[in-house]
Simulated assay, not measured.
Amino acid sequence: MKKKIKGSTGNCEQCGNYVYDEDYECYTCEVNLDEDEMARFLSDSYTDCPYYRPGDEYLIVRKQM
Rank of each mutant, 00 (worst) to 15 (best):
G16N: 12
G16A: 15
N17W: 03
N17T: 03
N17R: 08
Y18W: 10
Y18V: 01
Y18I: 01
Y18S: 03
Y18H: 08
V19Q: 13
V19P: 01
V19E: 14
V19L: 07
V19T: 09
V19C: 00
Y20N: 00
Y20D: 00
D21C: 09
D21A: 11
D21G: 01
E22D: 12
E22S: 13
D23Y: 12
D23S: 13
D23T: 14
D23P: 00
Y24F: 09
Y24M: 04
Y24P: 00
Y24E: 11
Y24R: 15
Y24V: 08
Y24T: 05
E25D: 14
E25G: 09
E25M: 12
E25W: 00
E25V: 05
E25H: 03
C26G: 05
C26V: 02
C26S: 09
Y27E: 04
Y27G: 00
Y27T: 11
T28Y: 00
T28H: 01
T28M: 13
C29H: 03
C29Q: 07
C29M: 05
E30Q: 14
E30S: 12
E30Y: 01
E30G: 00
V31C: 03
V31M: 11
V31R: 06
V31W: 06
V31D: 03
N32V: 10
N32W: 05
N32G: 11
L33N: 02
L33R: 14
L33Q: 06
L33P: 13
L33A: 06
L33K: 12
L33V: 03
L33W: 06
D34G: 02
D34E: 04
D34K: 07
D34F: 03
E35N: 05
E35I: 11
E35C: 06
E35P: 02
E35V: 13
D36L: 13
D36T: 11
D36S: 10
D36M: 07
D36C: 07
D36Y: 13
E37G: 10
E37L: 07
M38V: 12
M38L: 14
M38F: 13
M38S: 10
M38G: 02
A39L: 08
A39D: 04
A39V: 04
A39R: 10
R40Y: 05
R40N: 13
R40A: 14
F41I: 01
F41T: 06
L42M: 11
L42S: 11
S43H: 01
S43M: 06
S43E: 04
S43W: 00
D44F: 10
D44L: 09
S45N: 11
S45D: 14
S45C: 03
Y46V: 10
Y46N: 05
Y46K: 08
Y46W: 15
T47Y: 14
T47W: 15
T47K: 15
T47F: 14
T47E: 15
D48K: 15
D48Q: 15
D48V: 15
D48G: 09
C49D: 13
C49G: 09
P50D: 07
P50M: 03
P50G: 04
Y51R: 10
Y51I: 00
Y51L: 00
Y51H: 15
Y51T: 04
Y51N: 11
Y51Q: 09
Y51W: 10
Y52M: 04
Y52N: 15
Y52T: 13
Y52G: 08
Y52A: 04
R53M: 12
R53Q: 10
R53H: 02
R53V: 14
R53A: 09
P54F: 04
P54V: 08
P54Q: 07
P54R: 09
